[in-house]
Nucleic acid binder design. Structure first.
Lengths: 145, 145
DNA sequence: CTAAATTAAGTCGCGCACGATTAAATCACA
DNA sequence: TGTGATTTAATCGTGCGCGACTTAATTTAG
């Protein structure tokens, strides 16, 4: 151990685990998402739209914690694939509404089985899941202060 | 709730929290890392080198769970900033050794205070940290199966 | 001893993330 | 009513992540 400061040790660093765990989970999703031709962030955005269709870019951004510099190109790709439409709000031309197309709505059914498959892959008990959720929510809340 | 499948609901999805928490933590690090001019992945790689200097690209990759297609450009940037050197192993010319420069070693001292500051920012108890680590380790292990 | 297989690093292309900036529309209010 | 401030989306540049591939060196198997 050439480490002077034990706190710098990677094994003690929550940051490193979080960074890796997040990428591992994305990798776990990949084979499932590949079947429906979606990337992980695209899937997140569609989850938001399946929850509530016809949202503004800003509203999707607040839910996903992503800004227009990430969302605009992503949404354009979803539009090119015919999963969503992008239309200006005539009452306020600064705003862009995102609506699901029929294809986008139908895709929800194809994704129905993904959460259950992921739960199985993750290998966590319901109890562990609950604890993990709580800890992550604290971290997420801290970032917003 | 326009949601047919309750498992698809974002609030129930661990994936979404993990994805957000990971980015939030990166954002929490940013003001601290900006002072030393590092990105978050660069900091991770330097943590690995501060733990053990003189590693192969492959070894760093195993520790960080990153491949050469991510590491090579990142290491080149660190080399351009004079924090590491890249040198072929004369005994096996396929391999590239990464060594810290003096500047790279000195930078460790500047980063000494980062873990403690992050612990304060994260707002988690030691108990919560331990639980979080355990859950994340399970997820990370699942990804490797 | 050489041909095939393996290994390590690098290259390429795409899609995020995100800071910084811009442009346009709307709002506030003097 | 005009004008400066604010809001919203889009644009731009940089740096990851990662799948797919290439290149070069080394190992192995026959």
């Amino acid at each position: 151990m050439s480490q002077s400061n034990p706190q710098l040790n990677l094994d003690n660093q929550i940051c490193f685990r979080l960074y890796n765990a997040s990428r591992q989970v994305t990798r776990l999703y990949q084979p499932l998402l590949k079947e429906v031709g979606l990337t992980y962030p695209q899937y997140i955005v569609l989850l938001i739209l399946w929850e509530q269709d016809g949202q503004l870019v800003k509203e999707i951004g607040e839910r996903a914690e992503l800004n227009s510099n990430t969302l605009t190109p992503l949404l354009k790709r979803l539009a090119e694939r015919g999963l969503v439409t992008r239309s200006k709000n005539p009452d306020d031309e600064r705003q862009t509404f995102i609506h699901l197309t029929e294809a986008g709505k139908i895709l929800e059914q194809s994704c129905d089985c993904i959460p259950a498959q992921m739960m199985a892959k993750a290998g966590l008990s319901m109890e562990q899941i609950q604890l993990l959720k709580q800890s992550l929510d604290v971290l997420i809340a801290q970032g917003k202060r």
